[in-house]
Simulated scan of single mutants.
Amino acid sequence: MTFKLGLTGSIGMGKSTTAKMFADLGCAVWDADAAVHRMYSKDGAAVAPMGGAFPDAIVDGEVSRGVLKEIISQDANALKTIESIVHPLVAQDRNDFLAETKAEIAVLDIPLLFENGAEAMFDAVACVSVSPDIQRQRVLARGTMSEAQFESILSKQMPIADKIAKSDYVIETDTLEHAQQQVRSVIEDIKQGLKNA
């Protein structure tokens, strides 16, 4: 029986780095963003249905995220259509991963876990967190988005305090060492609970 741990947090809080720490310590890790990336690539599961809905979004046999952004900015209903195509495919990918994994603990990295009401499918949820100042510095240091885009993404995400309140574990990602200690503690706690179950 695999223990299902949901991993979430807001943009720039160190979720991907934390997911890698879980993987390095022997957990099986599934990443929602990576799943979408695979589906948008050549021969990916989303290419044909997306091409049916938005022919312009297919460039060189792949779904172009850049073109999708343009379409979403011009058409208020586009995002709903995209989600109606992608969400079932992502859910299928996640279920396939869970069916195949033999790991004691499976960590599912889902940015909008609470926003999508997915918490009920997990045995526990861990939320990564860091101060708003560090979060802003990290995101803007990537050089991939403007301050306005960052604010726009934040406005669509549930406030981190609410995510923390709903989570079973909180992992503070102020330093790598501190985050690693907490990841180890979470794994030990889960394993202890499995032993006592």
Score class of each variant (00 low, 15 high):
13 M>Y: 07
75 D>Y: 00
94 R>H: 03
163 K>F: 01
38 R>E: 11
194 L>H: 11
168 D>S: 05
25 L>C: 08
172 E>S: 07
96 D>R: 08
100 E>I: 14
181 Q>S: 07
162 D>N: 10
110 I>W: 13
118 A>C: 12
66 G>D: 13
62 E>W: 00
140 L>D: 14
196 N>Y: 08
140 L>W: 04
178 H>T: 08
40 Y>P: 11
97 F>D: 03
172 E>Q: 10
172 E>V: 04
32 A>G: 11
129 S>W: 12
191 K>V: 04
118 A>F: 13
117 G>R: 02
126 A>N: 03
172 E>T: 06
26 G>H: 06
30 W>Q: 09
149 Q>M: 11
193 G>H: 06
33 D>W: 08
32 A>P: 07
186 V>T: 06
117 G>P: 10
123 D>Y: 00
38 R>V: 05
16 S>M: 13
5 L>C: 05
192 Q>N: 10
73 S>P: 00
112 L>H: 02
123 D>E: 05
12 G>L: 05
70 E>P: 05
31 D>N: 13
133 D>M: 15
113 L>E: 10
94 R>L: 06
174 D>N: 10
168 D>T: 06
171 I>L: 11
60 D>I: 13
68 L>E: 02
134 I>N: 06
81 T>C: 15
126 A>P: 03
161 A>F: 03
17 T>S: 08
13 M>I: 00
183 V>I: 02
25 L>G: 12
2 T>H: 10
177 E>T: 14
62 E>Y: 01
5 L>E: 07
116 N>D: 09
93 D>E: 06
102 K>H: 08
119 E>R: 04
108 L>S: 09
115 E>F: 03
153 I>R: 14
149 Q>W: 02
195 K>P: 10
104 E>H: 15
92 Q>G: 03
177 E>Y: 15
192 Q>I: 05
47 V>N: 03
40 Y>R: 15
180 Q>A: 06
178 H>E: 11
58 I>Q: 02
112 L>N: 08
18 T>K: 14
113 L>C: 11
37 H>G: 14
1 M>F: 09
177 E>I: 13
51 G>Q: 00
176 L>T: 15
191 K>G: 04
95 N>A: 13
13 M>W: 10
70 E>R: 12
180 Q>V: 07
